[in-house]
Design a protein around this nucleic acid. Structure first.
Length: 122
DNA sequence: GTTCTTACA
DNA sequence: TGTAAGCA
């Protein structure tokens, strides 16, 4: 995970900021969370902590509800999107692992010239 | 002052 | 969905 994603996942913003940036009310945000449309981090004192990704998702929920969708439909739609993203992420991890195994293998040029090649030094 | 939960109009 | 009560 790169630094951009890391910062986008950093949950540090209070609900007051989320309210101003999304245009939603605290009531709505808490209602969406209670109905599993979004998962929001909590502080030690049980206060909600929002990340940039949280805000983006809240605005997405806001847009979807304004169109045609009902709460149940939005929940299922977002749930499926989450599954897809997870699968893509897992696939990416598998590709990276596969590449690393190849690069570390004795059949790879990178391995033959690598400082970490166990066959070169001692 | 802000946020949280619960409950009622 | 808004709002008030009582806490943290």
């Amino acid at each position: 995970m790169d630094q951009e994603q890391l910062q986008a996942d950093l949950a540090i913003l209070p609900i007051g900021t989320a309210i101003k940036l999304t245009g939603l009310t605290a009531r709505q945000i808490r209602y969406y969370e209670a109905n599993d449309l979004i998962s929001i981090a909590r502080s030690d004192s049980n206060q909600r902590l929002f990340s940039l990704n949280n805000l983006q998702r809240l605005m997405q929920i806001k847009r979807l509800l304004n169109d045609e969708h009902h709460l149940d439909q939005v929940r299922q739609l977002l749930a499926k999107m989450d599954v897809d993203h997870l699968e893509h992420h897992e696939n990416r991890v598998r590709r990276n692992l596969k590449d690393e195994v190849w690069l570390a293998s004795p059949f790879s040029r990178a391995s033959a010239n690598s400082r970490q090649n166990p066959f070169l030094h001692s």
